[in-house]
Design a binder for these strands. Structure first.
Lengths: 148, 148
DNA sequence: TATTGTTATACTCTATAACTATA
DNA sequence: TATAGTTATAGAGTATAACAATA
């Protein structure tokens, strides 16, 4: 089976690679009481000074807004983010990171980066950058939303 | 957010890209009564003349053997594959594609390829090959099993 | 009328443990 | 004792529909 059809399939490879990385990341994040999904929300909340609406989070993450509600609920219960009322639109709630959230992000990010580096160990820095560029174009091409 | 940390994260990009491709593939496969997972099993069964043991399927697909049982059950019920006894080991069951399975694979593969091409539309043929090569090395590097 | 957030529901996927029959 | 397959179960991820509040 040195050149089977499935192994050459980009869709299969993406799903397989994603599974490996998500699994490794979750294993590491468990030590911080997190998983990949909530961690992603936390990252975005930390990086947005003014906070992001849940709709924006859903768009960037490629999730349904109803799923974002649960993730933000979870992070709020853990004291890592909070919902603040928007000053311009009383419908929207801006999600911002708390000090504890920023601290948790710092600690978790170190471990996640290390785990990811292990996972991508066979790739050189240049190749990793190449992979990143190709994936970004793939995601931007269809999703569009990341272009924000 | 033109260069946010999350958007640059290879793990996030992999998961996002995988989600897009799996979603598009499932939408197409629904017309054939399939989803990505069973379709992958069908592909492997079609490509292996002698059939594959469920353990081999689990290794290649990166799944737990217990999950493979259900997938093969499903495909068997649909008449697309069948379990045959191994002549050398009465424990192992070799999964092989039926004629109906091969026909279904042909029809589905055309649609899936078209959907995938649409999904990867922004990438040139060379870039798509590059992406495939990088992902293969990523998967082989850790999983190892695909080398088998 | 459209949008933000929310609740509810159902289905798929993933992870584990335990069991059987063979080896 | 180890391995192939199976059953069972629970948790996480995904997909939809419907609703209240607000624009």
């Amino acid at each position: 089976m040195e050149s089977g059809a499935l192994i050459d399939d980009v869709g299969f490879l993406l799903s397989r690679a994603s599974g490996l990385v998500v699994r490794a990341s979750n294993a590491v994040l468990a030590g911080h009481g997190l998983r990949v999904r909530p961690y992603s929300v936390l990252l975005l909340a930390c990086d947005a000074e003014e906070g992001l609406s849940q709709r924006e989070l859903a768009d960037v993450l490629g999730l349904d807004p109803s799923q974002v509600v649960l993730l933000v609920d979870e992070l709020t219960a853990a004291g890592l983010v909070e919902r603040r009322a928007s000053s311009t639109d009383r419908r929207t709630k801006l999600v911002t990171a708390t000090d504890a959230g920023r601290a948790a992000r710092e600690a978790a990010a170190r471990d996640v980066d290390r785990a990811l580096t292990g996972q991508l160990g066979d790739l050189s820095t240049a190749e990793r950058a190449q992979l990143q560029a190709l994936l970004t174009r793939l995601v931007l091409g269809r999703g569009g939303v990341l272009a924000g």
